[in-house]
């Protein structure tokens, strides 16, 4: 998709003309995706929420200079990814694992009525989050943008300013590592995709 086909073009232009409510619409549209990237990059929901708010403040401040060379969403995810990487470097945090009662909510969204299934889903979700958190940063961000947020290879390359080949190789290594992480506990053969 080119910038000329940007679905957010009109809203962006309205914001650039001083229309604050138009910016609120952009926030409402993208807040959960920004939050999702931040939460899985940082491994901390509270920090992720603060960072997501700051991302929108940065974007609002810089939107006057946004020329539309890329999609607004691509630009927004780039700002988000860079903010996450900078935040992690600043705090030099040790690996934070999304486990325990609080963070399990990240993965378990649609609990099953079957107690056995519920337990399995919860454990699988925690295992997945742990596997994501154990990835190197440069692989993790690619995996989150592609397999969690559903961006195309090209959008990821634009957002992270990487070559397509780099995106492919990092993504493949990340998937293999996550697969190895959950394979120890769960049989992956023939399992169907479903909400965890």
């Amino acid at each position: 998709m080119t910038s000329a086909q940007d679905p957010d073009k009109e809203l962006v232009q309205r914001v650039q003309n001083g229309d604050r409510p138009a910016f609120n619409l952009l926030v409402l549209k993208y807040r959960n995706r920004v939050m999702g990237i931040a939460a899985r990059m940082l491994g901390d929901r509270g920090e992720a929420e603060e960072l997501a708010q700051d991302v929108f403040v940065k974007v609002y401040r810089a939107l006057g200079d946004f020329q539309g060379a890329a999609l607004f969403s691509t630009w927004l995810f780039r700002v988000t990814a860079n903010s996450c990487l900078n935040h992690r470097r600043k705090r030099r945090a040790e690996l934070r694992i999304l486990d325990g009662a609080g963070d399990a909510a990240l993965a378990v969204a649609h609990p099953s009525s079957n107690p056995h299934q519920l337990l399995e889903q919860k454990e699988l979700g925690i295992a997945l989050e742990k596997s994501i958190q154990s990835l190197p940063e440069e692989q993790r961000v690619v995996l989150i943008l592609r397999d969690v947020e559903g961006l195309s290879y090209e959008e990821i390359a634009d957002s992270l300013e990487l070559e397509l080949g780099t995106v492919r190789s990092r993504l493949h290594r990340a998937r293999l590592q996550v697969q190895a992480g959950i394979r120890e506990k769960f049989s992956l053969d023939g399992r169907r995709s479903e909400r965890l």
């Binding site: 899985r40 649609h110 397999d147 996550v178 959950i182 169907r192 995709s193």
Partner: peptide, 14 residues
Amino acid sequence: TTISLLGGLEPVET
């Protein structure tokens, strides 16, 4: 399956 599971992770809501 792994990719499907990752895609099935519920979005984190604000």
